[in-house]
Design a protein around this nucleic acid. Structure first.
Lengths: 341, 341
DNA sequence: CCTGGTTTGTACAACGTTGTAAGCAACGTT
DNA sequence: AACGTTGCTTACAACGTTGTACAAACCAGG
């Protein structure tokens, strides 16, 4: 009869309607066992009639928990982060958490604000993929449990999930060399302290060359301040006009590689016949680009699940335990941009 | 001296340290004007020393507001939604709101759960981009202010922001015809009730043909259940093997178009010489694909801003006012996939 | 029919915050 | 000197929920 939709009701309203105490309704709502079946039925009926929904702010205040974790990324529309976000949301939902996604912009100050807990008390924990933050920015502020992703703050004061960047970069470089390429360029190096991933992938690249007895040629290493498509295209153009003529190029992520493909196309060069191209991240775009993109495929689902589980463990368990370092698997995904059709 | 990081402090702690009442601290925190400078200074010092942060759950409980709005999309890693999400987060931040991003999966039941307010009391409002939901699913449940995006629930019981799909589809089809193409195919039609955007874009396509005196050929209209790259590729392949040979194709979104590009490439056909391709959405990928993708570019930033402003208006103002329908501008973005290089 | 245990329900206080009403100075005006 | 005014501060109650402590009702076993 009474509908109640649109109006906010409280435990008290339900209690009055069912003729029981507020706490009994609370017990029903929370699945407490010792409630007589007929009482329970009456309460549930009242709940349904009033369309009662618990006030989460009040519950959170009382319990000291919100059931919300945040996932902070530099930018949401960078495909790698968007895909990762999807997996984090899914993994969190499986464990009963809601995810609040936070966009930092990637600046150090903004990231520091996020880390120091601007959203504190609204979230129980934070999964953080920083770009610019240093380990020092993090020491001392352990208000909220935190799990770090990416390579920026390796061995910092918080739990961390990453992959073996050096090994993966070495393998994909070796893959290019295995095709007979000898003048293998790299796109995406960064001199700034922010470039932790860049540093590791460059190290892997260099290690592969050394292992194969190939020279490390400075001129073949192109920097890229950001890792967007436009930066990849610009770096590729710079390589092509610089006189050195690579026969392969390892881009430190897939968007750089897609930009490089574009620049090679504009220059009238064939991929992979003239220049083989490889990326890193295995984003969806690379499976449908022309040509399809060879890449390193990190297990994003695993990364997300490990991060969520690690965080859940921190929230429920020992917050003082020493930081853990977990590594997710990856595999090589060779496609047309190196193998041809 | 006393650091206090890592420990949670309350107004009471700050008050004791500063030698004032709890309410005075609250007043300082909230920028209340009538606080003597020296008192304010003492309080601020205590706040800094204890690294005090307000408990948002408590504040929310007291104020009846959370300062959080939700943005619900089918999938986060669909580029269009990812880009839209970024704009929503940015627009919301400008107005002092935090955005909680919700992933529905696109199923009707899941969407209904989100709409009926599973997160109720945690959010002040909801921006919702439904795929499967019907207007009936929404009637009656106005617990939380809501703004709808997309074409699924046009003229429903809630505020709505969209673009002129029919007009945009007609224009881009006319653009293809203007290049001299006569056998213009369409990819992305849907017979299900979910396909509201599909229906409108198909109508625009048909209207353009009619206006130009071109025949509407059933065989040139390819269905696609989902609008991912793989579906676009499959639909294109089906068109090519069906015997009808289009000289242009209008895909109802950009990911379909990128898939179509891929399939055309595999079939050895040149774009745009043999087949011109156009999409819809103007996602970042299309600006770097080979060839770059001609498309309809909706003003996503405007859509996001309108939605946030509309929602903010509902939250602060009249919730009973009749639903508003707003339309965001769009423009044609012709690129290589129709113009060539 | 009492005894002692379990089951079922209740009253009260607390979580940390802010709105309300009111107190107390210090001031300038009659 | 008595009187509002204004500026600054405080005590108290409430927001809606759940944990604690306890009372009432129930059930067996003697």
């Amino acid at each position: 009869m009474a509908d109640g939709r649109g109006v906010r009701h409280r435990l008290k309203d339900v209690a009055e309607r069912a003729g029981v105490s507020v706490k009994t309704v609370s017990n029903v709502v929370n699945g407490y066992v010792h409630v007589r079946p007929d009482t329970r039925a009456r309460v549930e009926e009242a709940i349904a009639e009033l369309n009662y929904r618990p006030n989460l702010s009040a519950r959170n205040l009382r319990k000291g928990r919100t059931g919300v974790i945040a996932f902070a990324v530099p930018e949401l529309d960078i495909p790698y982060f968007a895909e990762l976000a999807r997996h984090v949301v899914t993994a969190a939902a499986d464990l009963g958490w809601t995810v609040l996604i936070d966009q930092t912009g990637g600046g150090r100050e903004q990231e520091r604000v996020v880390a120091s807990g601007i959203t504190e008390h609204l979230i129980d924990g934070l999964i953080f993929s920083p770009l610019a933050l240093t380990a020092e920015d993090l020491t001392g502020l352990h208000g909220t449990p935190m799990v770090l992703l990416g390579e920026r703050v390796d061995h910092g004061p918080a739990d961390h999930v990453g992959i073996d960047n050096v090994g993966a970069a070495r393998e994909i470089t070796a893959h290019l060399a295995g095709l007979g390429r000898r003048r293998i360029a790299a796109i995406g190096s960064q001199r700034t302290p922010e470039g932790a991933s860049a540093r590791l992938r460059l190290a892997g690249y260099a290690a592969a060359l050394a292992g194969l007895g190939l020279p490390y040629d400075e001129r073949l290493v192109a920097p890229a301040t950001a890792w967007h498509r436009a930066d990849g295209a610009a770096a590729m153009r710079a390589l092509l006009t610089s006189g050195v003529r690579p026969d392969a190029v390892f881009c430190f992520n897939d968007t750089l590689a897609l930009g490089a493909l574009r620049a090679l196309h504009e220059a009238g060069l064939r991929v992979p016949e003239d220049v083989a191209v490889a990326g890193f991240d295995d984003i969806e775009d690379g499976r449908f680009s022309v040509p399809t993109l060879s890449t390193v495929a990190p297990d994003k689902e695993r990364i997300a699940r490990l991060a969520v589980e690690l965080l859940a463990g921190r929230i429920d368990g020992d917050r003082a335990a020493p930081p853990r370092e977990l590594s997710a698997p990856w595999r090589l995904a060779p496609r047309e941009s190196t193998l041809g059709r």
